[in-house]
Design a protein around this nucleic acid. Structure first.
Lengths: 268, 268
DNA sequence: AAGTGGTCTAGACCACTTT
DNA sequence: AAGTGGTCTAGACCACTTC
C-alpha cells in the first residue's frame, strides 16, 4: 500500500478536495502535532455538526458513505462515531442510522435536571417566569461566559413547580448576541425543557455542563418565591453550560428546595 | 469457517476446557438469551477480578494471551477491555500492559470525593475517628445493603479536616461479615482514602456509587463536631457504594460544610 | 430485498516501554 | 530486540428496520 504525506491536527489533509489516493494512517517522521485518523474524523464530524450541516434529530450519512467521503475505512469512521456517541453528541440506532443528539425526545429531564422526588417519580415541571430582560453582564457572569462586562446578556428568573409545589428558583444568564429574539412570551409558550427551545430556535445546543453545589440559606425573596421560611436550607447549584468547542453559553444559578426532593448523582 | 453451537449467558461455552475448535460469534436459532462474544469475555474477565485471580494494581494477561485463553480474536478481547477501561475497572498503559484499577495511586480523591476548595486546590484531608463499633443494622441501612436488621454492621463516625478546619462529618455502615477485623486502630493508622484500606485489607473494592444530595440544617451534635452554629446549612450526601456484581457494600452519610468548599459535578 | 449499524476475524504496522 | 497496547484496514456475516 502506498502512503502519502502528513498533516497538522484539526482541519487536516483529508478534509479538502482530496485527490490524494490515500491517507497516511500514521507518520514516519517530522510531523509536529500528530493525531490518529479517527480523531481527525471526529473533528471533521464535529465541524459539520457545529456548522449545521447535520441538525439535531437528523440522520447523518451512513458509516459507508462517511468512509468514502473521508477516504478512510469504515472501521475508522466507526471508532470516531463510537466515541461521539459515548459523548452524547450522536445517537446510534441499529438498522436505522446515526442521528444527531437532540434535547427533544431524549430524556434530558435526567441528564440536565438531576432532581427526583423522594418517593419515586417526578412529573414534568411547570415553569413560571418571574423576569426576562436584557442587561449588562454582571462581572462574574461575564468572566464565566468569556464576555466583557459591557456586553449584553439575557437575564431570566423563573420558578419551577412539581405537582403545584414550588421547588426551584433559577436565575439564568445567556449571551445577548446568541439569543437575540428571546422574550418572555416565547419562553412561556414553549413546552418542555428550555434547552429544546435554545436548540431549535437559536441554534445553540448545550452538550455538557459543570455544576458547583453547596448548601445555603434561603434569602427573603427566594423564600417568598418558594413559599417557605427565610433561612430554610436550599441546595444551590451553579451551572456553566458549554456548546461545541467547549464554548460557555449559559450560566445558571438554581436553588432547590430539597424537602421532598433530592439531587441524584452517579459516581462511576 | 465452521461454526459450532451456542450457549447461555454468563459462564458460557468458551470458559471451560475448550476443545471445540471454534466459537459461534452469533447464533442462528433457538438460543434464549444471546449476548455478544465480547460481553461474554467481559463477564469472564470480571469473574477473574472478583475471584482475586488478578488483584488491584496487578497486570492482567496481554490481549494476545487472553485471546488465546478464550479462543477469540484479539479484537474481541480488545473491545471487552475497552469497555471495562471505560468503566474504570481496568487501566490500559501503552507499552506496559493492562492493569486492574486500584484505589491507591489513582486519584480517587476526585472520583469519590468531589469536594473542592473555593479557591483552587485542596490538600489531603485528616481523618479523626469519633466512633467505631459493631452493632445491628438500622432498618434503612439493612434495606440498602440487602441485610437483615439483625445482621451485624460496622458503624464509623469520623470528622475530616482540610487545613485544620473541620469540613465533613461522616457516618458509615459496612457489612459486618465483610469487615471482620476493622478496628479504630487500623483506621487511624492507615494513610490515604479508606477505600484503599478496604481494598487491600478486606478485599472489597468499591467500583461505583450513587449519591443523593440535599441541603439540611446542622443538628446540635453535628454542629459541635464542625465547630459551627446549630442550624447552619450543610450539604447532605447519602451514598451507597457497590462492588463487583452491583452488590451494595457501604452506606455513607456525609454532611459537608460548604462555606469555603463546594461539590463539583460534571454533566456529560 | 436493500440499507443500516453491530459483531468478529486476521493481519499489518505503529508507538511506547522494558530488557 | 521483544513485548505491550494503539491504529488502520478489508472482509465476512449478523440483527434490525424499512420498503
Amino acid at each position: 500500500m502506498v502512503k502519502c504525506d502528513v498533516m497538522s491536527s484539526v482541519t487536516p489533509q483529508l478534509a479538502g478536495s482530496g485527490q490524494s489516493g490515500e491517507i497516511a494512517p500514521s507518520m514516519s517522521s517530522s510531523s509536529p502535532t500528530f493525531s490518529p485518523l479517527y480523531q481527525q474524523i471526529k473533528a471533521l464530524i464535529t465541524a459539520s455538526l457545529e456548522s449545521g450541516e447535520w441538525k439535531p434529530g437528523e440522520m447523518i450519512p451512513s458509516e459507508i458513505e462517511l468512509a468514502a467521503r473521508y477516504k478512510v475505512s469504515q472501521g475508522t469512521v466507526r471508532k470516531a462515531i463510537d466515541e461521539m456517541a459515548a459523548d452524547n453528541l450522536l445517537v446510534r440506532r441499529q438498522g436505522k442510522g446515526t442521528f444527531v443528539a437532540t434535547h427533544h425526545e431524549e430524556r434530558v429531564e435526567f441528564r440536565f435536571l438531576r432532581l427526583v422526588s423522594d418517593d419515586g417519580e417526578l412529573g414534568p415541571p411547570e415553569s413560571h417566569f418571574i423576569e426576562v430582560k436584557r442587561t449588562r453582564a454582571p462581572n462574574e457572569v461575564a468572566r464565566l461566559l468569556g464576555l466583557k462586562p459591557s456586553d449584553s446578556v439575557v437575564y431570566i428568573r423563573r420558578v419551577q413547580r412539581f405537582d403545584g409545589i414550588p421547588v426551584i428558583v433559577e436565575d439564568l444568564w445567556l449571551p445577548g448576541l446568541l439569543f437575540k429574539g428571546l422574550t418572555a412570551e416565547r419562553l412561556a409558550q414553549y413546552k418542555g425543557p428550555m434547552y429544546g427551545l435554545f436548540e431549535t430556535e437559536f441554534g445553540t445546543r448545550m452538550i455538557r455542563a459543570t455544576e458547583s453545589l453547596r448548601a445555603v440559606s434561603a434569602s427573603a425573596d427566594t423564600a417568598a418565591l418558594l413559599e417557605i421560611a427565610q433561612g430554610t436550607p436550599l441546595l444551590s447549584v451553579e451551572r456553566v453550560s458549554y456548546t461545541y468547542g467547549d464554548k460557555p453559553v449559559e450560566v445558571r444559578h438554581g436553588q432547590y428546595l430539597t424537602k421532598h426532593h433530592h439531587y441524584l448523582n452517579a459516581l462511576n
